[in-house]
Design a binder for these strands. Structure first.
Lengths: 123, 123
DNA sequence: GAGATAACTTGTAAAATGCAAGAAAAGATT
DNA sequence: AATCTTTTCTTGCATTTTACAAGTTATCTC
C-alpha cells in the first residue's frame, strides 16, 4: 500500500505514514507494553476513541506494519501484532522517548520504567 | 510555555509538541538546509500554506525551539533560527530520515545528499 | 436462544487544514 | 512625501479530520 507523497523527502514520507497524534502511540503499546487487542489499546491513558483506533489499525495493516489475526476460542477477538517492518520503528520510538524525557517537564517512566532500561533497548 | 499533556508518556508528550504533518519539516529546513526566512520555508516541495506556517512558527517560538529576530535593513524581514533546544531534535530528525530512506519506496536524498553523509551526522 | 464479550460503525459537533486573496510594515525609489 | 517593492502575516471560507456518544454485529458460553 502506498500513500500519496508530498515530496521525496524521507522525513516527510515518514510523517505521511506515522506523523499524527495517535499512530505511534498504538505502536508504542504493542512494542513496549505487549498490547495486542483493541480493548487494550483503549485503556491507554491518552484515551484514543474507538473510531480513530479502528481506522489507524486498518491503515497500519494496509501499510504492512501490523498484522491482524483471529484469536481462537473467543468472541470475535483479534490479535494485532507488529510485523518486522513495524518492529523496525523501535529506534524512532526510542529517540522520541529519550528526547521527551529530557526536554518535556513532567514526563515519566512508569511508562518506560527507566530511561536506560532494557525496555527501550532490547532487541 | 506548556501545552496540555495527554499523559506523562514521553512519546505522547513529544507528539503533542511536534507530532503533526508540518512542524518537523520546518525544523528540517532550518537544521539541514539552513533556511531562516518565511519565504524560504514556503519554497519547500511539500508546499506548506502561509497560515499554517505562521501558526507553526509562532508555536515553535513559544515552545522555545525557535528564535525570531528582525533582519536589519530589509523590509519587515525576519530571521528564524533554532535554539539549542531546537537543535537537540537532530537525532529525532535523523532517525526518521534513516527509517524513511530504508522503508519508504521513492525517498531520495538530494534532500540529504547521502544517507551516511555528514549532513545528517554533523554536530 | 439469551447473555456476554469484543470489535467495530454511525451520527454529529468541533477543530484543524487547505486555498485564495489581500492587508500591513518598513525600507527603496522617484 | 508619495508611491513601489518586498516580505510577513491575516482573513474568510470550503473541506477534511478529530472527538464524543451511542449503537450494531459477530461469535462463543450457558
Amino acid at each position: 500500500m502506498t500513500l500519496p507523497k508530498r515530496s521525496p523527502c524521507p522525513v516527510a514520507c515518514t510523517l505521511d505514514l506515522i506523523g499524527d497524534r495517535w499512530t505511534l502511540l498504538i505502536i508504542r503499546d504493542m512494542m513496549f507494553f505487549n498490547k495486542q487487542r483493541f480493548e487494550e489499546f483503549l485503556e491507554s491513558p491518552e484515551g484514543i476513541s474507538t473510531n480513530i483506533l479502528a481506522s489507524r489499525l486498518k491503515l497500519l495493516e494496509e501499510l504492512g506494519l501490523v498484522e491482524k489475526q483471529p484469536y481462537s476460542n473467543h468472541a470475535r477477538r483479534m490479535n494485532y501484532q507488529l510485523t518486522d517492518e513495524g518492529k523496525s520503528l523501535r529506534p524512532v520510538l526510542k529517540v522520541m522517548a529519550v528526547w521527551g524525557l529530557k526536554h518535556v517537564e513532567g514526563t515519566q517512566v512508569p511508562f518506560f520504567e527507566n530511561p536506560n532500561s532494557d525496555v527501550l533497548d532490547k532487541k
